[in-house]
């Protein structure tokens, strides 16, 4: 049952290790998504209501982060912050979250723009305070429109967690790579890592597509 190119013993050995790494992958995805979802909304609102003197620098920073590689940001942040923050994983998760904050902010912006002008006018006509207008009228409608994009970015983050290899965080692909390096058998570990990604992300993206259709 063991063809020369596929060794079930290796597969069986590495699989539990991969699942260990997968836990980190999932943790990073979930926390990164949380960061992006919250900070993204903050950034979107700042870009909408803050005075120019704040808005412009924020816009510039957001653009810079969005247009530079996550990989370089990871290494950079790790070098700068490692004297102050012990956990490389924490640094990685924050960088991932902030990188995707810049995407989420755009999604929220589009969502806010998609709230009909009449809604703002109705809120004004009812003399609703600004904070109440945002909280009760605009944000609920905006968020509804952003759900599919949010889901897609979560999947996207999930698939970019392997970029963590550059700061040696033992997520799944790093585990696979290490195993390959130690045993000179890459076939089983890397292939299985890819399959785990596929098995985890495909059903999720199907769900999101259904959500997209439902909300459309």
């Amino acid at each position: 049952m063991n063809p020369s190119w596929w060794d079930w013993n290796h597969a069986a050995t590495v699989f539990p290790l991969l699942l260990q790494g997968f836990k980190i992958t999932l943790l990073a995805t979930v926390l990164g998504t949380l960061i992006a979802v919250v900070l993204g909304l903050v950034v979107a609102i700042i870009r909408r209501i803050a005075p120019t003197i704040i808005r412009n620098p924020v816009t510039w920073v957001v653009e810079f982060i969005r247009m530079t590689p996550l990989v370089v940001q990871l290494v950079f942040a790790n070098l700068v912050l490692s004297p102050y923050i012990e956990s490389t994983l924490a640094i990685g998760i924050w960088v991932l979250g902030i990188h995707y904050t810049t995407y989420m902010a755009e999604v929220y912006r589009a969502g806010i723009d998609s709230v009909a002008k009449g809604q703002w006018e109705a809120a004004t006509a009812l003399s609703l305070p600004v904070a109440r207008t945002w909280r009760a009228v605009v944000i609920p409608q905006a968020i509804r429109n952003t759900l599919p994009a949010l889901g897609n970015y979560a999947i996207s983050m999930f698939k970019e967690t392997p970029f963590f290899v550059v700061i040696y965080i033992p997520e799944m692909v790093r585990v696979a790579q290490t195993y390959g390096g130690d045993t000179f058998r890459y076939t089983e570990s890397i292939t299985l890592a890819g399959l785990i990604f596929l098995v985890a992300s495909y059903p999720t993206s199907l769900l999101i597509r259904r959500l997209e259709k439902k909300l459309a």
């Binding site: 970019e160 076939t187 890397i190």
Partner: peptide, 14 residues
């Protein structure tokens, strides 16, 4: 579905 890094490693190592 299978992530860029995995594809790179697969082509380079597997």
């Amino acid at each position: 579905g299978t992530s860029l890094v995995v594809q790179l490693f697969w082509l380079a190592f597997v």
